[in-house]
Amino acid sequence: MIVLLGILVVVAGFATRRNPLLVVGVAGVLTGLLGGMSPLKVLEAFGTGFASSRSVTVFAVALPVIGLLERHGLQEQARTLMNRLARASAGRVLAVYLVFRQLSAAFGLTGLGGPAQAVRPMVVPMAEAAAERRHGTLTDRARERLRSFAASADNVGLFFGEDCFLAVGSILLITGFVNATYHADLEPVQLALWAIPTAVCATLIHGARLLRLDHTLARDLSAPAGRATAAVRIEEPSK
């Protein structure tokens, strides 16, 4: 029973907004000690756990490329490009990104999107340019809403796409865990197959919500239309 104190530490720590890294550290040490490990064994558990989970942090390797391109105007160019492609609405841009993210993740290409790799440099500028073209200058509130939904399209697409792929962490975790613990013989392909129904539901539900975003934006931004046209004109010389 007493090993469950670790879970309590996590709940209490996060509920009281302590630093998450500290909460995880304290919960890990406490659980290990209460579970009967010696202090040395606890340190070893942290060490081996870290060594075998390094793949989780590997995405950071793309940051210099993104930083370099942003320094040379990647976001600005995406805006310019989107200004030319006037037809797509913000909701449609995000819905297309959702489907793209799901499909690429389902082929195991989780590195194709992501907040640092795609949402910030590409998706948000595109969606904002589309929204500005249609509704005029965005209010802070509309911008916040749009960016929040851009982040959500990335997450929903990733979570409910990647599990359709055989060699993704979550699938390998499932097979590795039950085959080792219960001597089962589960194949990754069976698990990936049964991730598809939920993936389809995710596309339909979140896709519909993203498309509805255009109506919400139109409603929020219908009032200050006059000022908006002036602001768009100011931005034009930058093209």
């Binding site: 090993v3 995880v24 659980t31 290990g32 579970g35 558990a45 756990g49 989970s53």
Partner: peptide, 15 residues
């Protein structure tokens, strides 16, 4: 990554 580490510690401690 640290959460993945915590998960493995939870598991070996019998949570």
């Amino acid at each position: 990554q640290l959460l993945a580490v915590l998960g493995s510690i939870f598991q070996s401690a019998g949570v």
